[in-house]
């Protein structure tokens, strides 16, 4: 007797392949739409000129500079804070200690806080209470709060991947904990830190809602960190919603933004792959 594949098996196989195909299709639709419409607009002039006529014409040079500054402030603040916290949780606080658990719980909450609530907080704290006003500094600091949990989680993973033998050997040799950390564990955990950094960078570049009320709308070239600056994502939002006829340039800006993110994304998966293969990089 010939074996026949049961009917539910065939049906489920068909459905699952169809789902995978349609999800891929949706992604390709979105990407090709942005690429197709954006490509005809993006050129050297677009990247180096200032926007004019509310962004309908001209380029996005000041907006790229503002975005870079905001993200720069964000990373400069969040990296030391994030890596420090991760070291403490992973290496120094016992797993069950109350402090460790509290910090971990609050980080889980922090990771879930909606970006618009970060915007409210940034507006109330950095702009009003600390008197920074609508500025690149307020925007960057708000973003720093936002990417912190991502950075910490990934760095922690990096530290967890370092084999305990390293720690025991160092202890047996009488190396102090600080020296062990600095000379041995930190270099070994570097891939985790790097992945976290890229993930945070991606999140920071993509963010809009937290920036509208903290770094503001101004599309001139920023002169200092105290100036208001418009990020690329806010620019897209403004062109799409508030400027009629801004669609072409919105597409072009979206293409620039998506290209950055695809680049970051590829770097992450390349790094993660290397990380998984060798488990630990010998530096």
């Amino acid at each position: 007797m010939k074996y026949k594949t049961p009917y539910p098996e065939l049906l489920s196989t068909a459905i699952i392949w169809a789902i995978a195909a349609s999800v891929t299709g949706a992604l390709l639709w979105l990407l090709s739409d942005v690429f197709w419409h954006g490509m005809s607009q993006v050129n050297w002039e677009f990247l180096t000129q200032s926007p004019s006529n509310a962004g309908r014409e001209g380029g996005i040079a000041p907006i790229i500079v503002s975005t870079a500054l905001i993200v720069g402030v964000c990373l400069v603040v969040s990296i030391p804070l994030g890596v420090g916290t991760a070291v403490l949780i992973a290496e120094f606080a016992a797993n069950k200690s109350i402090l460790g658990r509290l910090v971990r719980l609050s980080l889980d909450v922090l990771a879930g806080v909606p970006s618009i609530v970060f915007g409210l907080f940034g507006n109330a704290f950095f702009c009003k209470t600390l008197g920074m006003g609508f500025s690149i500094l307020s925007g960057g600091l708000t973003l720093a709060c936002m990417v912190l949990p991502i950075l910490i989680r990934s760095t922690q993973e990096g530290f967890r991947a370092v084999p305990d033998d390293y720690r025991r050997s160092a202890a047996a040799l009488g190396v102090s904990r600080i020296a062990t950390l600095w000379e041995l564990l930190l270099p070994a955990a570097m891939p985790g830190v790097a992945v976290g950094l890229l993930l945070g960078l991606g999140r920071a570049i993509a963010e809009t809602a937290a920036l509208i009320f903290t770094s503001g709308y101004v599309d001139r070239m920023p002169e200092s960190l105290w100036d208001s600056g418009r990020s690329l994502s806010v620019h897209i939002y403004d062109l799409a919603m508030n400027v009629s006829g801004g669609e072409a340039n919105a597409y072009a800006s979206a293409l620039v933004l998506v290209s950055f993110l695809v680049l970051i994304n590829s770097a992450i998966s390349w790094l993660a792959q290397r990380f998984r293969q060798s488990k630990i990089l010998v530096v």
Partner: peptide, 24 residues
């Protein structure tokens, strides 16, 4: 490949989703 596509989907900024939704 499919995993990469999903990761890419996760990386696209919400404002681009919104813009695409708005015009398409």
């Amino acid at each position: 490949l499919y995993r990469r596509a999903i990761e890419l989907l996760a990386g696209i900024p919400s404002v681009v989703y919104g813009f695409w939704g708005l015009v398409v």
